[in-house]
Amino acid sequence: MIKFRGVNKWFGALHVLKDITLNVEPREVVVVCGPSGSGKSTLIRCINGLETIKNGDLVVDGQRLGDRATNMTELRTEVGFVFQSFNLYPHKTALENVILAPIHVRKIPKAEAEIAGREMLAKVGLADKFNSYPAELSGGQQQRVAIARCLCMRPKIMLFDEPTSALDPEMISEVLDVMVGVAEEGMTMMVVTHEMGFARKVARRVVFMDAGAIVETGPPEEFFSNPKTDRSRAFLSKILRH
């Protein structure tokens, strides 16, 4: 579903992605972790073209990024992206947030989009918040609206960039629960997170990045209990300490 082959990217002189090769199968959930600045965000932002790659091949849903034939706006409708900072539209209510792209991008009739939008908000536990503005919602609620906003586009792939790291601790689980639900329904997911509980529960693989390279890949159980490299051991001891 997502195929990186020898992908490199630079920000000026900074080599942020170093020869990345990675395959994500349909319905697979992959968790990406690693120290700050290791290139995790950049990696998943390349998948929907928020960043462009310098060389190598990146194929998403059968389409090669950077090809003339690849229509990025069309491809993006198949790829949902959940941001660390939610990025809800502050001038729109929760319901308006989730139906905006379905109406204008997917061209679904408004009445139909509203029914689907209400259903989706109810599914993430926000049945009583249809008409609330983002500023009236807690962080956890905002992030759940953001997830519902992606789901309303009926994407094939969902990308999450540290979806819970801007949240107060007591709100983290309500968002993770929703994400577990999405994973269990068979969504192809790449999730940048340090939440080991989530990784253990739904991820088939954990990808550990450091300094722009993929250093280690493995099933969560194995990676967390028996990391193979010094760098992953050092990283895990740091996140385990608190």
Partner: peptide, 22 residues
């Protein structure tokens, strides 16, 4: 904020849709 524009891009909006709606 850049995040608003990126939310629009990520949901498949064109430049004009982003401008007009977001």
């Amino acid at each position: 904020s850049r995040g608003q524009v990126e939310a629009g891009i990520a949901s498949g909006m064109t430049y004009f849709q982003r401008m007009r709606l977001v």
